[in-house]
Amino acid sequence: MTNFESKQEIGELVQEKMYPYRKGMMLVLSMGSLLFAYILYLSQLFVMGDAHIIWLVFAVLISTSILMVTVRPVILLNRRLWMNSLLLVHLLIYFYGLLLASDINQPYSSGLTIIAVILVLLSIVLVYRTTIYDFPSKRQRLIKDTRRLHFINITTGIFIILVTLFFLWAFLLFSGRATLGFLTLLTPISGWILSYTLQMKLLANQQKAAAYAIVFIQTAVIVTGIVLWIIGL
């Protein structure tokens, strides 16, 4: 048992050396999210009279999962995929929490909304860290280029998801029911996943120029879209 203890301690020291502040950030995120979930839930219940039980259960489950993988690192085949999945689910649940926080009567709303924004931003920062620095893929040799493309793609992805959520909300508000037309809303996200995957495959095969060409086209399409939308208004 003592042997095991020391092994774990050494492991932790190595981890801290390799990824400085990562564990601290994960702890702050998970503990902060957990406390925030209870406070937000009780505020919604006693100020507004609404019990968001399902949200609470999801928020507690995801925060506890992140807490557990932080304090007891599990050896997994694809650690980065798991970590990012947890963080993305956390991001979605706490984005909804942000909406719940801003919905409460003043003066409770301001403080809770600020905490929610901090938690969401921390989650986003950790997605960048996990992908770019902490768990780089072993297949990629062009480390600098990979980091650059990851950064661009994650940023694009967050933007596309936010825009898609906004349109989804607007469609639901005005039409009131789901139709097949909703699937067209998923086109930008599918396109982004396809383009992202392709870029990483090309980079792994050392085809730098082709990967950059694709990220250039991807960015150009989005910028054109924004410009057309602004002019159209």
Partner: peptide, 11 residues
């Protein structure tokens, strides 16, 4: 505890 409170005080 939170869930029970929610079931009791939900309006």
């Amino acid at each position: 505890i939170c869930i029970v409170l929610g079931l009791v005080f939900n309006k």
